[in-house]
């Protein structure tokens, strides 16, 4: 009911909402003449960014933290149709390079809420984060599924929200039964890359990770496991259950250490 009323606000009422966030939520055109009111041209640049980009990615001059969100599908070799919300490889990678190189950036906070995506793109992002010299902290909110798992563990310190989940399942080409031994070999190799990366960048053992990956009876149409916040920590996959304050605290501590190390001082 509320939504219905909201959509039918006329443009004469619009002047009472100076906040740009309201403006973009309903049709401001005059229904009779179909004219665009003059003040619709003036748009809040931040709102524009959020509307167009899905995130406010502009680097704030005054912040020493570079915040990057990875949401939806991780898009790599193929441009996915528009119903997918995607995080594109070719946007993320150069931004990480720029963040590594930019002297104003001292730490990187990666916020994850992803359903997975391209194996190679995901592993590339994970490798880039893992090999950065600047302190990195990842925080998993909502979900960090499939290829999101290696990205989540790639940072110096990983945090998962209490309610966030991570789905660990085998890699396959599609839902069909694998028939040819070569295909199986190939998929097994792809899978091994993911398992090895996760193992090397977190405290989980290979046995445990594979056990979770091939578990039956937990996912309805699939084998695998859904790991919820505290479980991810108990398996050694993620470092801590927490939220934003934990992430910023960790990052600030690490930035302090990084500064000391950079200035030739002793690292505590």
């Amino acid at each position: 009911m509320e939504k219905y009323k909201f959509l039918h606000l006329t443009h004469t009422m619009k002047d009472s909402f100076k906040d740009g966030r309201i403006e973009i939520m309903y049709n401001t055109r005059n229904q009779k003449t179909n004219e665009v009111p003059a003040n619709e041209q003036i748009k809040n640049p931040t709102v524009e960014n959020i509307q167009q980009l899905g995130q406010n990615s502009t680097l704030q001059e005054e912040s020493n933290i570079f915040c990057m969100t990875i949401i939806g599908q991780v898009e790599g070799h193929m441009v996915l149709p528009p119903q997918n919300k995607t995080t594109k490889y070719e946007h993320i990678i150069p931004q990480l390079v720029a963040a590594e190189q930019n002297s104003k950036v001292e730490g990187i906070l990666i916020i994850l809420n992803t359903v997975g995506g391209d194996v190679e793109a995901g592993l590339a992002i994970a490798e880039m984060i893992a090999t950065m010299s600047k302190p990195t902290v990842t925080i998993v909110l909502g979900g960090g599924h499939s290829i999101g798992v290696p990205i989540a563990v790639s940072s110096d310190y990983s945090i998962i929200a209490e309610t966030a989940t991570m789905t660990i399942h085998p890699i396959r080409l599609n839902g069909l039964v694998i028939g040819v031994p070569q295909t199986f070999e190939y998929l097994d190799k792809m899978q091994e890359r993911v398992v090895k990366f996760v193992m090397e960048h977190s405290n989980i053992t290979e046995e445990k990770f594979k056990e979770l990956m091939f578990k039956t009876g937990e996912l309805t149409r699939d084998i695998g496991t859904t790991v919820i916040g505290p479980d991810a920590v108990s398996y050694g996959l993620i470092d801590k259950v927490g939220g934003l304050s934990d992430a910023t605290k960790q990052l600030n501590e690490r930035i302090e250490e990084y500064r000391k190390a950079k200035n030739g001082g002793m690292v505590q």
Partner: peptide, 17 residues
């Protein structure tokens, strides 16, 4: 290219043409 995702491939690639 291999998609490693919890979203079914049909849903991901629907409308790619």
């Amino acid at each position: 290219m291999i998609m490693y995702s919890i979203v079914p491939l049909d849903d991901i690639f629907n409308g790619i043409e």
